[in-house]
Amino acid sequence: MSLLLRISELLEPFSSDPGIYMVVLHRIDGVPIYVKAKRDKKVKLTTLLYWLEGQIKEVLYYIFTRNLSEASFKFQDMVVRMYPVSKTLVLSIIAKDETPLYKLDLDLESACREISSLVIV
């Protein structure tokens, strides 16, 4: 099984969540290598994706230099969460702000750990 297929298997369950608009795995330079998004008239996902691409570089800087463990942005009725997977990958989710994140956080951390074990030899 290819690496990308295995990664998409691990991230697929999050996109089934009705509270999540988008799941993205970014490369170190901000370029997304996996995107799963839902159609929603209220959310301009391409604009958001472009904005995220810019943020990733900043987040990675703090991950490398300050041991940042996660970053969170909230605007309008959405929340953007970023989790470092490895020194070269960051996982982002965009969710409705009323989505309870306390349990989701554990599942996302599990996914990050599993992806990390795939990419770090």
């Binding site: 369950p13 349990k103 989701l104 554990l106 599942d107 599990s110 750990r113 599993e114 074990s117």
Partner: peptide, 14 residues
């Protein structure tokens, strides 16, 4: 249950 713990991961869904 509220979640389950496997060998190195914790899940709250499924």
């Amino acid at each position: 249950i509220e979640g389950y713990v496997l060998s190195r991961t914790i899940h709250t869904r499924g």
